[in-house]
Simulated scan of single mutants.
Amino acid sequence: MRRIGSTPQQRGSATGQSCPDVFELDGGDYLVIGKIDSGNGVGGSIRASSFAGVSGASIGPDERAVIVPRDCIVTAARQIVGEDAGGHDGKHAYAAYSVIVDGLNYRGEPMPEWDDLPVKIRAAWGNAAMGVRNRALMQASDKIRDRLIVDGVDKATASHAAALIDPRDPKSLDSE
């Protein structure tokens, strides 16, 4: 089990006792510690109304609504998102770059392992990889659309078919 996000002390608790917290369990699930609503506030209202207006949401007999301060959830979410920064595409792009430069950075020093890179750098590699992938999809989409038009398919149908692999807004293809 490991803590996700900031500690209660980092969020202003003097003792760190009886404070909201978020943990990732060994199996990958999350444990949230929060205030159990006594029925006078949000949790009680939600239980009584079975999440009125929120499709498909309810609290089961073995579940409890807990209230967790926003800053606790926000710091936990930032850590979770940050750990996934770059994703597989960024990691593969970084590895391919490493092969081309013989594992050395621009200063001639060994490149760090992917997991040792700062979150911002991993996210940048992920964004760069996504940009390259999207550009390739856009080019392929344009070629498909143009080929279909040459083969006699009307422009609207060709654009619709090409949009199936195009990361751009489908409406932008109609104006071309």
Rank of each mutant, 00 (worst) to 15 (best):
A14P: 09
T15R: 08
Q17K: 15
Q17D: 14
Q17T: 12
S18P: 00
D21Y: 02
D21F: 02
V22Y: 04
F23P: 03
E24K: 11
L25T: 12
G27W: 06
G28R: 04
G28D: 04
D29A: 12
L31V: 09
V32N: 02
I33P: 00
I33Q: 11
I33C: 02
G34E: 08
K35Y: 14
K35F: 13
D37N: 04
D37S: 14
G39Q: 01
N40F: 13
G41P: 05
G41E: 11
G41A: 12
G44L: 00
G44C: 05
G44Q: 03
G44D: 07
I46A: 11
R47S: 03
R47Y: 05
A48Y: 10
F51T: 02
G53H: 07
G53C: 11
G56Y: 06
I59M: 10
E63R: 03
E63A: 06
A65D: 00
V66G: 08
P69G: 08
R70M: 10
R70C: 03
R70W: 10
C72K: 03
V74F: 06
T75A: 01
R78H: 09
R78F: 08
Q79I: 09
I80D: 01
E83V: 00
D84A: 12
A85F: 04
G86Q: 02
G87E: 11
D89K: 10
K91V: 03
K91I: 05
H92K: 14
H92R: 15
A93N: 05
Y94G: 04
Y97C: 08
V99D: 15
I100R: 08
I100L: 08
D102H: 12
D102R: 12
G103Y: 12
L104R: 14
N105Q: 06
P110I: 03
M111K: 11
P112G: 09
D115N: 15
D116F: 08
L117D: 02
P118Q: 09
K120Q: 14
K120D: 15
A123V: 00
G126L: 00
G126H: 05
A128S: 01
A128H: 06
A129K: 04
G131V: 04
G131L: 07
V132D: 02
N134I: 04
N134D: 13
N134G: 02
R135P: 02
A136E: 06
A140C: 01
S141H: 01
D142W: 03
R145I: 06
D146K: 12
D146H: 08
R147I: 08
I149C: 01
I149H: 07
I149L: 06
D151G: 10
D151C: 07
